[in-house]
Design a protein around this nucleic acid. Structure first.
Lengths: 221, 221
DNA sequence: ACCTGAACACCGTTCAAGT
DNA sequence: ACCTGAACACCGTTCAAGT
């Protein structure tokens, strides 16, 4: 019964944890279940995340919110285990104009949140001073500075953009959670709800349109 | 040891649950702790919420998101226990113009979310086809219809407004969660973050301004 | 270094019983 | 109807032990 050295890694653990969250929701993720999925005793996870589940949650948030040029989702079986990512390496400078960089970020970020919407509630209360979060913030600040803003206007613009994406994603997730409103509850007191029931929204198109409006509104006058 | 008839009620349970969440976070709310706070065995709660904790969570969400003219937060000791709320009673029609009604709703809704930000993550995955949610939706749809919109435009406008408030609140809660970014992590790779570190935002003013922009943008052309 | 296995305190929930 | 108390299955985590 001593199947040791299972080849566990933080990456594998995070990937499997997200798989469980996607399938059974955040409440379905338990250390024991995660251990089973990894074919390992639950306690082995603590060797990679000594601070336990909270630390694992932090890592999951960082994984999801990490919108880097190098793709994140995918198989982790590398051919060359010698070559390491090297987080200090400067990525090649993005030559696109500021608004295109922000557009690309917004679409990628949204896609990541939607792909793992079960983990959405995690991002609310975790402090985002991680490497990935700092990189995103730098991307935003630099872009809005290039656009001609300065000082508090830059911070405000970045806040607006972040709020827009988060709000849109959460609204979509909630809207998709209800097929339609409980017919029994919609009575004479809700005439316009009854009239508009079943009106479906194209969330992708709506997001793209709104993003353009936000970016246009953030441009200095 | 038989202290019976503790005067438990759904209202008291929800109020005490929110108190615990406000103080110790959502993870700090356990049935046993809630029972202690109510001076009752934990199992007594199941008599008022037979479906358990999930049902309690639903009730908490409904309580928080219920923006009704009659105030919600406050002492529950009524002088006249005979008189019941009567949920079928038609509230007096709101005579204010559509934009003022929406403005009032947005500010009240935001205040409720901020007051119990520890429960924010609950609102993401709970289906909002409750009485309170339907009333809010009717308020939105009726207002935008009165503004001159129709069909899918009404639904889109309501989605934009809801997304705006949610996004703004979550951004604020996350921003307040970090005093400032970890100085050690801000290095040469984050020049604009370093330059703008410590720039504080007035969240109230920002929200009010953004709300005006949203409402103006939703007005039919 | 990496993983196991037993143990501990705590959790949500069920169920029979009390009043 | 409303609440208690014991019980069950499960949880996160600690710790000593194995290799």
């Amino acid at each position: 019964m001593s199947r040791n050295n299972a080849g566990l890694s933080a990456e594998r653990i995070i990937t499997e944890a997200l798989h469980i969250i996607d399938g059974r929701g955040l409440g379905g993720l338990t250390m024991r279940r995660l251990g089973d999925a990894l074919e390992v005793e639950a306690m082995a996870i603590y060797h990679h995340f000594p601070l336990g589940k909270e630390q694992l949650f932090d890592a999951i948030v960082e994984h999801i919110t990490d919108v880097s040029p190098a793709g994140a989702d995918g198989s982790a079986d590398a051919d060359d285990p010698e070559e390491e990512p090297d987080p200090d390496a400067q990525p090649p400078a993005d030559e696109r104009p500021w608004d295109e960089r922000l557009r690309a970020w917004a679409h990628d970020y949204r896609a990541g949140l939607l792909r793992h919407s079960g983990a959405l509630s995690l991002i609310i209360h975790r402090r985002p001073d991680t490497t990935a979060a700092l990189r995103s913030l730098e991307l935003h600040y630099a872009a809005f500075t290039e656009a001609g803003l300065s000082g508090a206007d830059v911070v405000r613009a970045a806040a607006t953009l972040d709020s827009y994406v988060t709000g849109a994603v959460i609204h979509q997730v909630r809207a998709e959670g209800i097929g339609s409103h409980d017919p029994a509850a919609v009575d004479g007191r809700h005439p316009t709800v009854a009239a508009l029931r079943g009106t479906a929204l194209d969330h992708d198109a709506r997001f793209a349109d709104g993003l353009e409006a936000v970016l246009a509104g953030l441009r200095p006058a």
